[in-house]
Nucleic acid binder design. Structure first.
Lengths: 259, 259
DNA sequence: CTAAACCGACCGACCGGTCGGTTTTTTGGT
DNA sequence: ACCAAAAAACCGACCGGTCGGTCGGTTTAG
């Protein structure tokens, strides 16, 4: 099936350069005929060694990974199906054998990003009893996912809202809303618990605990904003990395800038 | 010059519909010949009354406003120059009379967004003496600018990073960095002042005040993230509006979710 | 009469997607 | 083990349409 990326063989696009690469030889090279049968490999690509045909699930995964990388680098609309095919050393027709269209590729990328969020953030967090611990874990795991160089689907999902057709977009938006709602309820629990733990003389004068000055909904949007915006400014060589960003963002949420 | 939008005359695109409208009559209609001279107006557009030719600055402003609205609705790459021209009831050639190219339009929109930030946020804030008041004002003004239905350039600038060519992008990025730096230094001042104001018995044991647990840089990025992300979730009919969002985001930054 | 504003045909390139192939791999029978 | 047929994977020409941008005009304003 599709050749996997091999050192020296991978397409190396610049940050915003358009390297429109036509495939120079059959990408599925299991035949006894080598690349010389149908062309000379490009100067930046050694012949890929033959390999067993893999199942279709792996083909689709490979396409989605490559497409996600290109969509992240150039944007969905500015990336063509020809670009995606070239990066995979496929023809466009070959790409269309695996996916019905460009819409489906974007949808699967975004859906996969929601799966990642479900598996890497929500599921672990749901297993934690104490709300404050749960919220701290959610912040850490969400930041880790946004910062992960492997999970490019996440930033594609964060950035590309408009291009999906309405029916597909709705399905993604439903999952996003569920996530926001989960965060909101979690913050509400943390705020409620914090009041329970306060000395009686602070709350005794009230019939019930006063509402916090920051509503759970506003806090949820603020938290998601500060974390999701990381993809806009983060630099792997910058001074803010996961290990010092996570505690600071966590402290900020719980205690503000003056904690 | 260009007709300004008149009730009943304005292009009404759906959120993601592509209304490819060809101009049906000369857009500069000062001639004694009315629109009937060259065609019947479209069903959704009454004839625009003739008006004095305006100067080129206003033409360019009108084009930038319209382009910003379309770029915000559909994205820069998914909006064509033909789309922009149609929305202005111009031909594409007419559009190219005012701007050298699509790049220039996006650059001017983003530059204008930085001007708006300079005039509506930075300049007023610089006139405030107390750092904490200055930071509170910055939060309020920045949120107001992001929420402003008129200042679509802001959300275009927040969203469209990649499409500009490197030289133009660099110029915008320099201004963005200046803004981030300003916010960072302001937060550092606020944190410093907060320590000055603490009772001696809390700080006397230290040779100098301990570093806050949230660095100014992390706090600046977090603050900009929570505010800039508003454009992704904000709904005019939602329960979170400027007047209740501003105090909550301010309280969150200063005191966290438990204040 | 000149300049500004505008138009519409046109350019080469590319878009998403299709289709009629070829090539490669898999499968089943001998 | 071999072979032929079927299926899967892939290719490249092609489709109608559109892209950003140009150019030789026409129309309108000064």
């Amino acid at each position: 099936m599709l050749p996997v990326a091999i050192a020296g063989c991978q397409v190396q696009p610049g940050p915003f350069s358009f390297t429109r690469e036509a495939p120079l030889f059959r990408s599925s090279l299991l035949s006894v005929h080598g690349p010389e049968r149908i062309g000379i490999p490009g100067p930046d690509c050694l012949p890929c060694p033959p390999m067993a045909r893999e199942n279709t699930v792996d083909s689709r995964q490979e396409i989605l990974r490559t497409a996600a990388r290109l969509f992240q680098q150039r944007g969905y609309d500015a990336t063509s199906m020809n670009d995606v095919a070239a990066a995979l050393k496929l023809s466009k027709g070959g790409l269309y054998h695996h996916f019905q269209g460009k819409d489906e590729i974007l949808f699967e990328i975004m859906n996969h990003a929601m799966e990642i969020t479900q598996e890497r953030v929500l599921a672990p967090v749901r297993g934690i009893a104490r709300p404050e611990d749960r919220l701290r874990a959610l912040i850490r795991l969400h930041i880790e996912v946004v910062l992960s160089p492997r999970d490019r689907e996440i930033t594609v999902m964060l950035h590309e809202n408009h291009p999906l057709p309405p029916a597909l977009r709705k399905r993604i938006n439903v999952r996003k809303k569920e996530y926001v709602h989960f965060v909101e309820q979690l913050i509400a629990e943390v705020q409620k618990d914090a009041h329970k733990g306060m000395p009686k003389d602070v709350t005794a004068h009230a019939a019930r605990p006063p509402k916090p000055r920051v509503s759970p909904r506003a806090a949820a949007f603020a938290l998601l904003g500060m974390i999701n915006w990381i993809y806009q400014w983060y630099k792997p060589e910058g001074e803010l990395q996961a290990q010092n960003l996570i505690p600071q963002f966590t402290d900020l949420l719980f205690g503000g800038i003056l904690s």
